[in-house]
Nucleic acid binder design. Structure first.
Length: 470
RNA sequence: GGCGCAUUCGUCUAGGGGUCCAGGACGCCGCCCUCUCACGGCGGUAACACGGGUUCGAAUCCCGUAUGCGCUACCA
């Protein structure tokens, strides 16, 4: 068994393409088959080498590994011409000298008359004389029903009459998609073709070609499309569309892989969080749903949070690195552990961690308003500063004991000290457990931040510094 | 327009004639935990597109309708 993922390098790796790649990989792994990566760059107008490289990089990042390739179709041009000529010799294809202009004119006339246009087959009947004129090679389509069994769609039927003599080889000598896929799928011994639903209507053409070449047909599986929240094909308008954008957003590759796997497929039961290996053990293309799925970013974010929560800091670190500059693992390990269940993305995680490295924290206005009040706050904070300075060792237990003892001594609820302390240390109204924060920050930073907070207190008070009679 | 395909909570899905007045997850809403925020736990909200068949019995099978999407290029 052999499958392939065959993107055309006209842009970044689209999440729809990413899912197609994943399903191909999963099916191959499940059945002990191999996986080929083929770059379909026969459209010189739109293909770009950097896009091909980008797609390869995205697949690697995502964890879609292939066994063969990447093979570039642009390296196989001679082969496509050769095979097209074979069909001309055997009479299954013919040269057509009709120009694009002529055809467009015909089409315009037909459309004006309200009729749908199909190529007349003029050059098929009247073989053009050998001349220097440029030509395309068209396939001579035979009328008659074409049926095939799709692993996902079931039995699908088409009428040959409705397919016109499509172009195999363009006038510039480049093959069209139909020619290159079929030639390659034959030469590369592909047994299963799993691709987007947009190719379902092209399949009869391909079947005709497989037959013309005397080759057996592969098994087809047409995957339902991934739609945006507007129920249209996922596009820029409805959100991020490329794997790369999700990476830059701070999505971990395992989470995107898992999420994409769940679009149109389910391992059965109530399982939602699973690894590539687990999916590889049970996946089968025939279990894929027929209906298109809408890409729900909210659920992706939830899933990413699930992954962050479960991953050890050491595993998160390499993915987080691009978001936190050059900071070393040792400097952020404890922070990752403190914040990983509070962030949905690596970006959020990085933002939260950033406060620990600034010289002076900014105090959130809302938190200030809520917690900076009471005439004796400065006094309490000074006492807290002294109590923490005496805490030894400076760990979670000791700092907590020190604060609670002080609260009891002053007849205050511990919260009355905790919230201002949080504001002093993080500048925010919300954070992980304050004693965890203190322990991670370390005695020196805690005392410095607390001292600065006390200093700034007059400016932060609701009455303002000037109106404070002192 | 023609051809093709699809249709279970707002979204992802389970389910393939009786166990389904439809299960899980995201989201949303409550409650609990608690120094805050998260995490976690508990509970709630919400769906078989519509109409005809077949059958003792249909979300499940058949036919229509509607809606949506795809293809209809010398793009893939």
């Amino acid at each position: 068994m052999k499958l392939r993922f065959a993107p055309s390098p006209t842009g970044f790796l689209h999440v729809g393409g990413a899912r197609t790649a994943i399903f191909n990989l999963l099916h191959a792994r499940r059945h002990g088959g191999t996986m080929l990566l083929r770059i379909e760059d026969t459209d010189v107008e739109r293909s770009r080498q950097h896009h091909a490289e980008q797609i390869v990089a995205s697949l690697q990042w995502l964890g879609v590994e292939w066994d063969e390739g990447p093979v570039y179709q642009s390296d196989r041009l001679a082969r496509y011409r050769e095979r097209a000529e074979e069909l001309v010799v055997s009479g299954k294809a013919y040269r057509c000298t009709c120009t694009v202009e002529e055809l467009e004119e015909e089409r315009a006339v037909a459309e004006k008359a309200g009729k749908q246009w199909r190529y007349s087959g003029r050059c098929r009947l009247v073989r053009p004389a050998e001349s220097g004129a440029s030509y395309v090679i068209r396939f001579a389509v035979d009328a008659g029903p074409i049926a095939f069994h799709d692993l996902i769609r079931g039995d699908v039927h088409f009428e040959g009459e409705l397919i016109d003599d499509f172009v195999l080889l363009r006038s510039d000598g480049y093959p069209t998609y139909h020619l290159s896929v079929v030639v390659d799928d034959i030469d590369m011994a592909i047994t299963h073709v799993a691709r987007g639903d947009d190719h379902l209507s092209n399949t009869p053409k391909h079947i005709l070609l497989f037959r013309a070449f005397g080759a057996g047909e592969p098994v087809f599986a047409h995957l339902p499309l991934i739609l945006g929240s507007d129920k249209k094909r996922l596009s820029k308008r409805s959100g991020a569309t490329s794997a790369e954008e999700y990476r830059d957003m701070g999505i971990v590759p395992q989470a995107l892989f898992n999420f994409l796997s769940l679009l149109g497929w389910s391992p059965g039961g109530d399982r939602e969080i699973f690894s590539k290996e687990e999916a590889s053990a049970v996946f089968d293309l025939s279990d894929v749903n027929k209906a298109p799925a809408i890409f729900d970013v909210e659920k992706l974010l939830w899933m990413n949070a699930q992954y962050l929560q479960r991953m050890p800091a050491e595993e998160i670190y390499p993915h987080l690195r691009p978001f936190i500059g050059d900071r070393e693992l040792a400097a952020v390990r404890d922070l990752i552990n403190l914040y990983k269940m509070r962030a949905r993305t690596l970006k959020e995680l990085a933002d939260q961690i950033a406060v620990y490295f600034v010289d002076d924290v900014d105090y959130e206005a809302e938190a200030v308003k809520k917690h900076v009040k009471g005439d004796d706050l400065a006094d309490s904070m000074r006492a807290l500063h002294a109590a923490l300075a005496a805490a030894e060792p400076f760990d979670v237990a000791a700092t907590e004991a020190a604060l609670r003892a002080l609260a009891a001594q002053r007849g205050l609820g511990a919260a009355k000290l905790i919230h201002p302390l949080r504001l002093a240390l993080t500048g925010k109204g919300a954070s992980p457990g304050i004693f965890d924060v203190a322990a991670v920050l370390g005695k020196e930073k805690v005392l410095r931040r607390l001292a600065r907070f006390i200093e700034r207190l007059p400016d932060l008070s609701p009455s303002g510094p000037s109106s404070t009679p002192r």
